[in-house]
Design a protein around this nucleic acid. Structure first.
Lengths: 398, 398
DNA sequence: AAGACTTTTTTAAAAAATTTAAAAAGTATT
DNA sequence: AATACTTTTTAAATTTTTTAAAAAAGTCTT
C-alpha cells in the first residue's frame, strides 16, 4: 500500500474529524476499494478507529472513521514579542493539558531560543504526556521566516545553526515553525470561517498588522516565504515613523499598539474616557487589550480611535482587493474581538478607495477563532507537514 | 490511451518546440513506455513528427519530437481601446499571415463586438488559411473579464448573450478571451523572460498599468477573474482625477497616457524639447509613442517625465513586493521599450518604500517580447485551453 | 408491514500503468 | 578498433487501479 495515501487520509481525518469511505473516495478521487484497503490498514496499525453510523438520506448508513485521539499528540506554541502560549492537543484537537502563558521577550534577547527550548521541555515534563507520543511541535512566531530552511531572520537568533535544528537538538522533537499570520490563516482555512474556501485574505490584527494568504486553497508563502508583509506597505506620505525605519507604514498608522499609544497620549491631554483609570501607568501592549475591552463596552473615545484605525486598514484592504480579487477577507488575530467596530469604517474606506465591481465580490468576515487562531494554526502546521518521515507514523505503519 | 495525456503532450511540445521521450517522461512523471505509446499515436494521428537527433553527453542520441506546424493554426487577436491587431500562427509559433492592425474604438461603441467579428472573418478569408484548420481564436482585450463565463463587463457589449458565444456564432470558431495584461503575463511565462519561473509579477505598461500574476507557475486570476487590477490602487491622497472616477489612482499618476498628456501641456507652456514638433496636434495616445521614441533618443524632457512616472510605479511595486514576495517583476507591454529608463527611478522608489530584506529578493527584469506579448499570449491562451473538445483534435485523434 | 428504492460496502474480474530486464543504438576512451 | 559506458527502445511481468456486479443495510412510501 502506498503509504502516501495513508498519511493523506490521516491528515484529512484530522481536519474533518470523521469521514466515511465514500466521502474519502470522492475527495481523493480514488476508487472505494483503494480507500477501503488503506483505511483497514490504518485500523490494523492502531491509528484509526471505526465510529458510529452517520445518518443517511435513504440508504445504507455509512460507517464513519476517525483518528484515535490518544495515540499521538501535537505540541502547539504561539509566540508574540512579549509572551508565549503553549499547549498540547490530541488528534481530535482537544487540549489534553492546560494552555500556559509564559513571559518571553524576543526583542534584543540573544538567549530567547534556548529559553524557548526550556519552556517546551518543562511544559512537556509537567504535562503527563509521554514525549515519544508527541508527533511534532508547531511554533508560530513573529518575524521574517524561511519555512524551508527553518530560519527566523528577525528573532530568536541561533548561532551557526538554524532555529529548527537548534530546537530539535534541545527538545528531541520534530519542529515546524512559521510566521504567526500564516498560522492564523491556516487555522481559519482548516477550522475557521474560511473553511474550504479557495481564495481568502486573513488579516492578523495585533501589535502589527499581518496578512496570511490563502490562494487556490493553500497557504501562499511567496518566493522566500515573506509574502503577506502587509504591515509595512507605504500607505501615506507623511505618516508617523515606523519601527522599521520608514514612514507612513500601515502598522505605524493603524496597529492596535499605535491605537493604544494614541489613547494614552489623548488621555494625558485631558480627553474624557472610561479608559482614564485602566490605562494609568500600563504598558501600551496591555493598554491595547484594555482599549478593546472599553470599546466593546461602548466607550466613545476608544470607539473613535478604532474607527480611525479601521478606515486606514480599509484603505490598505482596498489595495489588497485590487491585486488579489479574493472571495473573502477575514479579520482575525487578537483584534478580531473588535471586528464589528472596525467593520463599518473598513467598509467605508473600501467604498471610497476601490472600484465597486471589485469590492462587491469580496465579503468581509470576522473570525470566530480570534486569539486562539495561532495555537490552532500551529497544530494545523504540524498536520500539513505530516509524512512518512515521522517516527511515530513509521512505527505504527511498519 | 488516455487522450488527456496526448493533449498534454501537444501543449508541452508547443511550448518547448521539441522534446525527447525521456524529457517528457521526466516532466509528466509517467514511464517511458507510456509516453512512447502516446507519442507514436500522435504521429499516427498526423499531429506530431519525428525531428532530428539531439546531441548527447556520451550515450545514444535522443530522437526529438515536435508538432507538425501546418496541420493546425491559431488565430491571435490583441486589442486595445483604439486598435486591434490580428494574426495567424502555426503550431511552431510562426506567423503564416501578415499581422494586420485595424482601427476599432471600444469606448462608447455598441457595435464593437460585431465589428470585431467582421474583422476576424475578413482576415481569415484573405489569409489563404482554411477555416477548418484553425484550432481556435485567442483574443486579448482591456476590461473586466470573466474568463469562465466568456464575458467582458467593460467593453464589447453583446445583448443577452456572452461575448464568447456571440463571436463563436458569428465566426464559427472556438473563441477564448482574456484580459490583455493576463495574456502578456502568459506570453512572458511561456516564451519570454519569465519562462518556467514560478512566481512572477508582469507589469503591462501601456495606456493603463496592468498586472498579470504568475503564482505557482500558472496565471492567477482571483475569485472572479479580476485579480491584478493594479491601475486603480489608491496611491496618493491628492492625485489627479482618474477615468474610473476616483482620485490618486496609479493609472492617473503614471500611465504612458498621462505622461503624454503632461508632455503636451508642458510644451504648450513653453518647455523646450525635441517633442515640440512631433507632439503638435497629435492625439495623446500617438503622443505616447512619440514620447517614448524621444526618450530613447535622449530627449531630456521626455526622460524627466518618464523618471517621474517610474518613481510612482516603483512605489506601487513596493506594495506588490510586500504582499506577493515575487521572485521577479517584469516590465512588459508597449512601455517595455523605455524599460531601461524606468528601471532607475523604480529601483530608487523600491529602496525608499520597501523593506530591504524583501526588495533584494525580487529582481526587476525588462521584457524582450514587448509589444508582441499580447499577440503571443493570445496564442498561448488557446494552447492552455487545448482539450479533447476541439474538433480538429477529435478528428485527428479519433 | 411489505416492497421499492437508495446508498454503502464487498468481492471479483478487467484494464491500465509502471517497473524490470534486456536488447539496441550510439559515444568516448584506451 | 575494441571495450566500457550512456541512453533509448522494446517487450514481458508485476503491480495498481478501475470497473462492474452483487450483496448488505437501511429508508421511505403506500
Amino acid at each position: 500500500m502506498k503509504t502516501n495515501l495513508k498519511t493523506d487520509i490521516l491528515k484529512k481525518l484530522y481536519f474533518e474529524r470523521e469521514l466515511s469511505c465514500n466521502e474519502m473516495s470522492a475527495f481523493f478521487k480514488k476508487s472505494i476499494p483503494v480507500i477501503s484497503k488503506a483505511v483497514n490498514e490504518l485500523i490494523a496499525d492502531g491509528l484509526v478507529a471505526e465510529g458510529g453510523l452517520a445518518p443517511s438520506s435513504g440508504g445504507r448508513r455509512p460507517v464513519m472513521y476517525s483518528i484515535k485521539p490518544d495515540e499521538m499528540y501535537i505540541l502547539t506554541v504561539a509566540m508574540d514579542q512579549l509572551s508565549t502560549r503553549i499547549g498540547i492537543v490530541d488528534m481530535q484537537n482537544n487540549y489534553v493539558s492546560e494552555i500556559k502563558m509564559i513571559e518571553l521577550h524576543l526583542l534584543n534577547n540573544n538567549d530567547s531560543a534556548s529559553q524557548l527550548a526550556t519552556i517546551i521541555n518543562n511544559y512537556i515534563d509537567n504535562s503527563g504526556i509521554e514525549r515519544a507520543r508527541i508527533l511534532a511541535a508547531g511554533i508560530g512566531m513573529p518575524g521574517f521566516i524561511n519555512v524551508n530552511e527553518g530560519v527566523n531572520y528577525t528573532h530568536l537568533p541561533t548561532e551557526g545553526i538554524s532555529l529548527v535544528d537548534f530546537l530539535q537538538k534541545h527538545t528531541g522533537l520534530t519542529i515546524y515553525i512559521d510566521n504567526d499570520s500564516s498560522l492564523i490563516a491556516l487555522s481559519e482555512l482548516r477550522f475557521g470561517i474560511a473553511k474550504a474556501k479557495k481564495n481568502v485574505m486573513v488579516i492578523n490584527l495585533g501589535w502589527g498588522i499581518g496578512l496570511g494568504m490563502i490562494v487556490d486553497g493553500t497557504l501562499f508563502r511567496g518566493h522566500n516565504g515573506f509574502a503577506g508583509e502587509f504591515s509595512h506597505i507605504p500607505l501615506s506620505e507623511d505618516g508617523g515613523l515606523c519601527t522599521c525605519g520608514k514612514q507612513g507604514c500601515l502598522e505605524a498608522e493603524a496597529s492596535m499598539l499605535v491605537v493604544a499609544e494614541k489613547a494614552i497620549a489623548g488621555i494625558k491631554n485631558g480627553r474624557v474616557s472610561s479608559l482614564q483609570q485602566s490605562l494609568n501607568d500600563k504598558e501600551s501592549k496591555l493598554a491595547g487589550d484594555a482599549l478593546m475591552d472599553a470599546a466593546n463596552k461602548g466607550d466613545q473615545y476608544a470607539i473613535e480611535l478604532l474607527t480611525e484605525a479601521g478606515f486606514k486598514i480599509g484603505k490598505a484592504l482596498a489595495i489588497l482587493i485590487h491585486i488579489m480579487n479574493p472571495e473573502s477577507i477575514v479579520l482575525s488575530g487578537r483584534g478580531a474581538r473588535v471586528g464589528k467596530i472596525l467593520s463599518a469604517p473598513i467598509q467605508q474606506a473600501l467604498i471610497k478607495y476601490s472600484i465597486p465591481r471589485l469590492a462587491v465580490n469580496t465579503e468581509l468576515l470576522i473570525s470566530e477563532l480570534g486569539f486562539d487562531g495561532e495555537l490552532i494554526g500551529a497544530a494545523v502546521l504540524v498536520m500539513e507537514n505530516l509524512n512518512m518521515k515521522s517516527k511515530i507514523i513509521q512505527a505504527a505503519v511498519a
